[in-house]
Nucleic acid binder design. Sequence first.
DNA 1: ACATAAGTGCAACAAAACGG
DNA 2: CCGTTTTGTTGCACTTATGT
Length: 205
Amino acid sequence: MDSHHFNFHLNHNQAMMSHPPPPTSSPPQSVPGRRTPLGTVGLGGFFAQPHASSSHQSHSDENKPSTSSLMHSSEVSMPASSSATTGGKQKNRQGKSVRLNINARERRRMHDLNDALDELRSVIPYAHSPSVRKLSKIATLLLAKNYILMQANALDELRRLIAYIQSTTGAQPLDLASFPAAAKLQQLLNTPQAQLEQNASSSNN
DNA sequence: ACATAAGTGCAACAAAACGG
DNA sequence: CCGTTTTGTTGCACTTATGT
C-alpha cells in the first residue's frame, strides 16, 4: 500500500496542476499534492529510539484540512457550524478589512511555516528524487527528530571510541584547535541543558 | 495585536463493493 | 475476471476562534 503513494507521484503532480491554485501568492510547491504518509517513510527509518512511540501518532489527523481555495479571501464566509452563531456578531463588529488583514497574516504565517518545513526536508537525508513524493509535514518532523537522535548517538559513540583509543595507546589528547567542529561539540557537551536552550532561543531572534 | 488551535471543505488516492 | 462506482482515508490550504 505504501509503495503506491510513491508510484502515483507523477500522476498526482499532473492532477494537482488542474487544481485551482490558491487565490493568494501561495508559493508554488516544487512537489505539490499529497505527501508521503507516515507509514511510507517508515518513521524511525534512520534509527528507532526505544521510546519512539509512533503508535499513537501513526493515524492521527495531524493538521486539519482547511477550507478550499474556492473560498476566496475576499469573501468572508462563515462556516455553517457552531461558532457561526457567536461569531456573527463579532464579525460585524470587526471591520471587514480587519478580518481580511487577519486572514492574510495567517496565510503568510502558514506559508512561512511551510517554507521552513521545505528547508528542513532539504537537509533530511531521504530520497529527494522527483519520483519520490514529498514528505508530509508530520513525517518531516518525525524523521528529522530521528535523524537528530541518530546523529547524537553516532557522535557519542565516536567520543567513546576516541577516549578508548587514547586510554589504550596512551596517545596525546587531540588538539581540538585543528578540529573546530569537534571543539564546538565538546563545548556543547559540557554546557548545561538550560544554557543550551537559552542560547538557542536567543540565536533564533 | 499577534500566535496558535480548531473547524471546514476539497482533491487525490486506495480499497471495497458492485454489475456485466 | 475486469471495469466502474462507492466509500473511506489522508493531507492540505484556508478561515475563524481563542489564548496570551
